[in-house]
């Protein structure tokens, strides 16, 4: 089944709020080989002016992931997960994510393109804090391979 060309412009309901845990941030930081005390030590983060440990930039994908699952699980999207390859990724921050944040993420498909038998689906996930203010937008382009 091909990717639904009418996906472009579609938004999904906001994913359930994601509460950023301190130990999750520290676990993620160690997993990407971060060594900065600001990512690992609450005292160091507070001394630098943050409320708690700062999440590494790519931690935002953990929050985004829940919205990508909505897209991939939507039978009407026509996206066969087994054929999906991650093409590119971008994070644009208004402020960094810190432990204690309660984040709400909403995905919108911004474009669907065909290229040489493949489909390129670009989706933007806007992430806001408990105050409704923008924190980060995560943008992924997924390459969906066509029939061999």
């Amino acid at each position: 089944m091909p990717v639904n060309a009418e996906l472009a412009g579609r938004s999904y309901p906001a994913a359930p709020p994601y509460l950023v845990g301190r130990e999750k941030v520290r676990e993620f930081a160690r997993a990407v080989l971060a060594t900065s005390p600001l990512n690992l030590d609450p005292e160091a983060a507070r001394a630098a002016g943050y409320a708690d440990v700062v999440a590494p930039p790519t931690f935002a994908v953990v929050v985004q992931e829940h919205t990508l699952a909505q897209l991939l699980e939507d039978p009407d999207s026509g996206i066969d997960f087994a054929r999906v390859v991650h093409g590119d990724q971008r994070f644009s921050f208004t402020r960094p994510i810190v432990a204690g944040d309660e984040l709400t993420a909403t995905l919108t498909v911004t474009s669907v393109k065909s290229l040489g038998g493949h489909s390129m689906v670009t989706a933007e996930t806007a992430v806001v804090g408990a105050d409704g203010e923008h924190v980060v937008t995560a943008i992924s382009t997924l390459v969906v391979r066509g029939d061999e």
């Binding site: 997993a31 990407v32 900065s36 600001l38 990512n39 790519t58 994070f91």
Partner: peptide, 26 residues
Amino acid sequence: MGLAVQPVVDWLAGDSGKIVDYQVRF
């Protein structure tokens, strides 16, 4: 993507909050 940015974080004296945009193509 996550580990490739760490040398930049360290150059920023460990303040990953100074990164306002990060993109890559796989």
